[in-house]
Design a protein around this nucleic acid. Structure first.
Lengths: 254, 254
DNA sequence: GCCGTATGAACTGTCAACAATTTTCATAGG
DNA sequence: CCTATGAAAATTGTTGACAGTTCATACGGC
C-alpha cells in the first residue's frame, strides 16, 4: 500500500483540551455507520492506525471502540491481527431471524397491554407512509420506514432490555454477505401484515399481536431464504456514496 | 484510603515476551467473575490502575475489557469518572425476565425439533440431580444445577445467537441489588416444571415445550416479585470468600 | 517458471507518561 | 457543629513509543 497521503480529515474540530466528551462513542458510531452503509463489508480488517489518524486521535480510543463493537457482534478479533468486520453465515443469519421472531412476539404481547393512542397514531402514520411508498415503488423509502416501524413496535413494549437488544440484532443482519434485500413484490404482503399487527395492538389483543409479529418476522425469514436462491432482489439500503473512498479493502485471508 | 500495600498479585506468571494471548479476555473474565460472586456489587467503581496493577498489566487492556463489559451491560461508564458496576432497577429486572421468557420459548420450540437422545439423557440427569438436591435441601447445589439445566436447554436449540445471548442476560440479573434468590419451597415446583419441559422435548412437542419454558421463566419472575416483599429468601449463590479483600467499596455518590 | 526463504515494512498489543478532571482532606468561616 | 473554600492527591482520557507478530515483496534454489 503506497500510503495514500492524508485522506481528507473527515470530522472533529481538532484542538480540544477540555474533556467534555469521550472519543470512544464517536468512533464506535462511525464504525457502526460505515458497516451500516456497506462502506465496510464483512471480512474487512480495521486498520487502527489509519482510522485513528483519519479521525484525528490515537489508537487507544479506537481499540476501546472496537472492543465494544466486538461484544456487539459487529467485529471479531484475532490475536496479533486485529479486528475484522464480522461476516455471518447463512445459518447464523437464519438463527438471527428466529431470535428476532421470538423477541418480536414478546414485544407484541407486552405492547398490546400498554400501547396508547399517541403511539397507535404514530404506527398508523408509518404504515400509511409505507403504503404510499409501495404505490410509488419507492423501495429505499419503504426500507427505511420498515425499519422505523419495527423500531417503533419494539419501543411500544416499554421493555428496556428489548429496546436495547433489538437494534443490535437488526444491525447484525447487515453483516450477512448479501445485505438487506427487499423483494419488490413482498412489500404489499409485508405491509398488510403491518396493518394487521397495528390492528391487534389497537384491540389490546396481546396474544394475536405477538403471534402476528412473530409470523411477520418468520415471513421475512422465508423471503430471505428465497432470495438466497434468486438474484433478482433489489438492494433497498443506501450503499456507500463512493466505493473508491473506502481504504479498508483488505479482505480476510484464505 | 491508606493505600493497602500490594494486595496478593493474584494471577499471571509475570514475565512473558511472546504474544500468545491477549490480556483483555483475562481481565474481562476476572471482572465478570468478581461480579458473579458478589465480590463487586452494583454501584462499585472500577479502579483501573489498582486492578491493572493487581493483575500485573497496564491500564490499556483493563480499559478495553471494561468497554466490552459496558456493552455486555455489566458496567456503565461516566465521563471522567470511569466505570461502575451497573445496578439495575426492579423494573429492569422484571423486563429482563420477560425477555428471558421470550427467548426461552423460542429455544423450546426450536429444540423440540432437533433434540437428540444424548441431550435428553443429559437433561434427565440434571433434573435427577436436582431432585436429589431438593431431597437434601441443598440450595447451593440446586442453584448451580438449575443454571446448568437452563444453559443446556438453550444449547439444545442449536441457535448460535440464542446460545450467545442467554448467558449475558442471566449475568445481568446478578446485578440486581438483591441477588439470585432461591425460595426453598419453590425448588419442588420449579423442578416439576423442568420434568414437564424435558418430557415435552422428548415428545418433540415444540409448541408445548416453548409454552412450558416461557411459563417456567415467568413463574420465576413471579417468585422474584414475591421475594421483593419478604426477606425470608435464601442466598443460593456463593458469595465472596472474604469480603474484606475487596478493595472496591466506593459506592455511587448521592 | 515455481516454490520456499528471507528481509523489510506495516501493524498489533502493551506500556509509561501527561494533562484534565474529580475526589479527598484540611482549613477557615458562619 | 456544620458548611464553604481551596490546595493536594488520586484517577481518568488520551497520547506516543516500543517490542513482537504478521504481511508483502524480492531473492535464490530447483
Amino acid at each position: 500500500m503506497p500510503k495514500p497521503v492524508a485522506p481528507p480529515p473527515v470530522t472533529l474540530p481538532p484542538p480540544r483540551t477540555p474533556r467534555t466528551a469521550s472519543y470512544v462513542p464517536v468512533i464506535q458510531h462511525e464504525i457502526e455507520r460505515m458497516i451500516g452503509t456497506g462502506e465496510l463489508v464483512g471480512g474487512t480488517r480495521i486498520n487502527e492506525s489509519a482510522l485513528a489518524m483519519r479521525l484525528g486521535m490515537s489508537r487507544g480510543p479506537v481499540r476501546e471502540a472496537c472492543r465494544a463493537l466486538e461484544q456487539l457482534g459487529l467485529l471479531r478479533s484475532e490475536l496479533n491481527r486485529g479486528f475484522f468486520v464480522r461476516e455471518i453465515s447463512t445459518k447464523q443469519a437464519l438463527d438471527l431471524y428466529d431470535v428476532r421472531a421470538g423477541l418480536f412476539a414478546t414485544a407484541g404481547r407486552l405492547a398490546a397491554n400498554i400501547v396508547n393512542i399517541t403511539q397507535l397514531r404514530a404506527l398508523d402514520d408509518l404504515v400509511g407512509e409505507m403504503d404510499k411508498a409501495i404505490a410509488g415503488a419507492d423501495i429505499a423509502t419503504f426500507y427505511l420506514l420498515n425499519n422505523a416501524l419495527h423500531a417503533k413496535l419494539i419501543e411500544c413494549s416499554d421493555n428496556a432490555k428489548l429496546i436495547e437488544l433489538y437494534p443490535t440484532l437488526e444491525a447484525e443482519l447487515h453483516l450477512f454477505r448479501r445485505r438487506g434485500l427487499v423483494l419488490p413484490g413482498s412489500m404489499r404482503v409485508s405491509n398488510d401484515e403491518h396493518h394487521a399487527i397495528v390492528e391487534a395492538l389497537r384491540q389490546s389483543d396481546g396474544a394475536t399481536a405477538g403471534r402476528l409479529m412473530e409470523r411477520h418476522i418468520l415471513a421475512g425469514k422465508a423471503r430471505f431464504l428465497r432470495t438466497l436462491g434468486e438474484p433478482g432482489a433489489v438492494e433497498g439500503r443506501p450503499g456507500p456514496l463512493d466505493p473508491t473512498t473506502s481504504r479498508f479493502q483488505d479482505r480476510q485471508r484464505s
